[in-house]
Design a binder for these strands. Structure first.
Lengths: 138, 138
DNA sequence: TCGTCGAATTAGACGGAGTCCAATTCCCAT
DNA sequence: ATGGGAATTGGACTCCGTCTAATTCGACGA
C-alpha cells in the first residue's frame, strides 16, 4: 500500500486508472471502503454512504461493488455463508476470521510460505489462493 | 479414511458414535454424502434423497445438515457466495475450486506445510484453517 | 400388543441478500 | 443548449435458508 491518505480526487483517478468512469456514487462507495480500509459488507457500505441523506440506491451499491470487483479495484472475501465482504486491500494477503465477532484481519502474504501443494488439474491455471484462519476466544 | 464402503447400517453406527439418533431421513442424507464422497450443496442433497419419491422435506435436510455440522460428522466449505457445500471428508484437508464448473477437489493437508503465519490475536485459539486454490482453464 | 410421550419431521410462511427491469436522470460531446 | 448513451433508481422478484406450529414417528413400559 503506497498511498495512505485517500481523497475523493485521488480515488477518482484510481477509478479512471482501472477503466471506470468516476461518478458521485462510485466515488462515495470507493471512499467508504478505502478511507476506512476495512472489510465491509454490501449493507454496511450502503449504510455508510447513506448516513446523512439517502443518496445511493441498493441497486447502485451492488452494481458498483460488482464493477469494482470485475475491474479488480477491490477483492471479495468469502468467509460467512450469509454475506460477502469487500476488501479494499488488493495486495496479496490472507485473513484471520474471528468467528464470534465476524471481524476480519489481514495477514501479509509476503511473510507466508506454503509448500507441498499438488500440481493443478490439467489445463488449469491458478487464479488465486485464499487462506482463512478461523479463530475464537479461548 | 479407513472405511471405503458405506452401508446404511454402518452409517447408523457412525451417527450414534457422534451422539445422533439415526432416523430414516438422517441415514439417507448421510448416505447421499458418504456413498458419493462428494461435495454437495443442500439442494443437491435434497434432490438425491428425493429422487424416487418425495421423502424428505427441505426443513429436515437443513436441520440435518446443520446437526451433522454441529456434531462434526461433516464439514462446511464456503467458496461460493451463493451457496454452501457440505463435505463428508472430515480429515484435515484443503480445496481446489474450479471457478467455471464449481467443482471442488480435496488436497490432503498432510502433504502441505504453511510457515510464517503471525501470532494469533490475544486470547484467541485456532478453530481451523481453510485454504482454497481458485483455478480456471488456461 | 397397545398407549404414551418426547423427539423428529413437515408444509408453508417468512426473512434477508442479491438481481433484474423498465423508467428516469445524469452528464459529456457537439 | 441539446441529444444520446451511460448511470442510477425503486420496486418487484428470486433464491437460499430459517422459523413455527401442527403432525407423525418410534422407543419404551405396562
Amino acid at each position: 500500500m503506497e498511498a495512505t491518505h485517500y481523497t475523493r480526487d485521488n480515488l477518482a483517478d484510481k477509478l479512471r486508472a482501472h477503466g471506470i468512469t468516476p461518478t458521485h456514487q462510485r466515488i462515495e462507495i470507493a471512499y467508504a471502503l478505502f478511507s476506512r480500509c476495512e472489510h465491509l459488507s454490501a449493507d454496511q457500505v450502503m449504510a455508510i454512504v447513506n448516513e446523512r441523506h439517502s443518496e445511493t440506491s441498493k441497486a447502485t451499491v451492488y452494481n458498483t461493488l460488482n464493477l469494482f470487483l470485475e475491474k479488480k479495484v477491490i477483492r471479495e472475501v468469502i468467509v460467512d455463508p450469509s454475506k460477502v465482504f469487500y476488501d479494499p486491500n488488493t495486495s496479496p494477503h490472507y485473513h484471520i476470521y474471528e468467528i464470534e465477532s465476524g471481524r476480519l484481519t489481514d495477514i501479509d502474504a509476503a511473510d507466508v510460505r506454503v509448500s507441498g501443494l499438488p500440481p493443478l488439474p490439467d489445463g488449469m491455471v491458478t487464479e488465486g489462493m485464499d487462506i482463512v484462519i478461523r479463530v475464537r476466544s479461548a
